[in-house]
Write a protein that binds this DNA or RNA. Structure first.
Lengths: 114, 114
DNA sequence: AAAATAGTTAAGTGTTGACTTAACTAATTT
DNA sequence: AAATTAGTTAAGTCAACACTTAACTATTTT
């Protein structure tokens, strides 16, 4: 059975690793070379490259090579999609919470009137 | 070496699975029993239980048993933490974008004045 | 041209993850 | 009390992950 991952699968999976989140934190402040992303990480360069591939496959990062330097950039859409999913859950959760609150207020008013 | 996962690791990891996201989508509309969460999923009940454990460990869901029924609820804070991290990245990304835009506008104005 | 820099590929290892089936417990219903 | 329902535990399998080292390719710099 092929493992057909959706876009959100790949995005959240990519976000689940602390090394990859550090890379994104750096990139959200501006473009950077691979070795710059590697600096704060205590792992080999090939490992960093593998993390970069995961980020690119998820669409969270794009990169291009100039000379011998590969410059990486954060990409908006994948980030926005993940944010959108989470925000939809929060919205539903809050709507439910608000309805409950309104109901409780109604109960309280009815109580003081009866 | 113990694998000390942070809260965000666990949260994003939990969100990376489509079955778990479906469970959360259901729960964001209101509490539900385990078997109700299992309904739309094409897997065994034990598998659903394992997913539920992952969600609870990540703090995304709480549950309590009454009689023979376990009722599950979505939990706000873990969701908010994940949202917060993503939103911080977007904010930084947008701030940079805005600065770039302002700079380009400045260039354009300078161009028409010189 | 030689040495250093920046990145890349391949291959192997140990750990987690996502299931499964089988067997079981504890509440309800009939 | 017997059958059903709802959930749980244990154990095993197979694939995916997160690395590693070794060896290699391009591009600069000296």
């Amino acid at each position: 059975m092929p493992n057909q991952s959706t876009s959100l699968d790949l995005t959240f999976q990519a976000l689940a690793d602390p090394a990859r989140r550090k890379m994104l934190e750096r990139l959200s402040r501006g473009p950077a070379a691979v070795s710059e992303l590697a600096l704060p990480l205590t792992m080999s360069l090939p490992a960093v490259l593998q993390h970069l591939t995961v980020l690119e496959t998820a669409g969270l990062v794009t990169s291009a090579k100039t000379g011998r330097v590969r410059t990486c950039q954060i990409a908006g859409p994948a980030l926005a999609e993940a944010l959108g999913w989470l925000d939809a859950r929060r919205a539903e959760w809050e709507a439910r919470f608000d309805r409950l609150e309104a109901y409780l207020n109604e109960l309280k008013e009815g109580d003081s009137n009866g």
